[in-house]
Design a protein around this nucleic acid. Sequence first.
DNA 1: GTCTATAAGATGATAGAC
DNA 2: GTCTATCATCTTATAGAC
Lengths: 222, 222
Amino acid sequence: MTARPAPHADPTRARLLDAAADTLREDGITGLSARHVAARAGVNQALIFYHFDTVAQLVDAACRAAVEASIRDYRDRFAAADTFADLLAVGRELHERERAAGNVAMMAQLMAGGQSNEQLAATARYCLARWNDELDDAVTRMLARSALAGLIDPAGLTELISAGFLGLELYEGVDPSSARHAMSTLEHLGDLIEIVDELPAVARRTLQTKMRRRRRPPRSAR
Amino acid sequence: MTARPAPHADPTRARLLDAAADTLREDGITGLSARHVAARAGVNQALIFYHFDTVAQLVDAACRAAVEASIRDYRDRFAAADTFADLLAVGRELHERERAAGNVAMMAQLMAGGQSNEQLAATARYCLARWNDELDDAVTRMLARSALAGLIDPAGLTELISAGFLGLELYEGVDPSSARHAMSTLEHLGDLIEIVDELPAVARRTLQTKMRRRRRPPRSAR
DNA sequence: GTCTATAAGATGATAGAC
DNA sequence: GTCTATCATCTTATAGAC
């Protein structure tokens, strides 16, 4: 058979993927052009079309690769998180590191572009789904042990957490001090939820009863 | 004196402002060009530069005007909100209506563009600050009456709510069903907070003591 | 104030030499 | 696989007629 190098072994391809992700992270969706990406990768502009056909397909491949790479770093930590406190700790660390790495910014740009471009939207959906997959198991485990078991939908909470992080990221890009202020308030709220979770059994049962009553009103009129 | 019509009375100016806001809402920051906006407004492209000098300044003016206009509709409702339940109800309504009007999408696009464009970032900061001004009084009043008084910073909570709404909006643009799922989970969480807030005085004091202990550890080592 | 025409440059994408 | 050169089209912005 002919020598067919694995796709990932192609150095030009890899340089373009990295450059596309970096451009999205640093210059945003508006700065993303074939020429910019190629210049950053140090290769000729025409190679983008040779390797990926269109700029949009390069972006798609770059974002998928970036998400796979960063998710791998967190798989073990998510798997080890059982309690709300654990999950909050992982979330804090993930936010700090992914922020520094620019991956949340990349996601935010992808989603902003996806509002009016179905191809980018599909890429964004895929990336979100991958992160949510990782989060989901941990959130489900955590909820199962908590006072909120059966009251809050795990998948919905996972999506809500993702949405919240993305909003904070966008905020941080235009107003860092306010965003950090919001983040620290979120941590206070996290502490609060943790405390509620540690309430004595009597209080927990009261909470659950009230919650069920509120969400599932009896069929007969009161 | 010469006849100098009020700036808002200029029909071309007004058409351009509306068209710029609509373009941002529908086509996003990537679709925003002088030609697109002018075509939508039904006027010549050169008039953008005559009236606003640059496209960026038109966008700035359009977003400020749009935010002023929509805030005016909510001032009374925010002013009337005292409890957490009130605020949640206003938030729900605001989210639905502003989403339908496309104003949250406009903000999200503004912030996405602002990540790499200081002029857009300044516009985004201004718009966010205006919304937060409106929210802040209501959040402060609500917190003051709640079990969390003194435990959660009102300004931080306001910023957190804004960030969360923006994240949900971005999410909805690429994955509507997941975003709605997340939104309904948020409403469940809102109910939960409300219930905690209605706990008997004993439970509230326990909560406050635990929270203070966690956030402000004594200086002497345990 | 509004238009046409145009400058000056960026963009996605392709053809074809090497 | 990689390059140069190029197309057609888009962009912001300006000059000048009306």
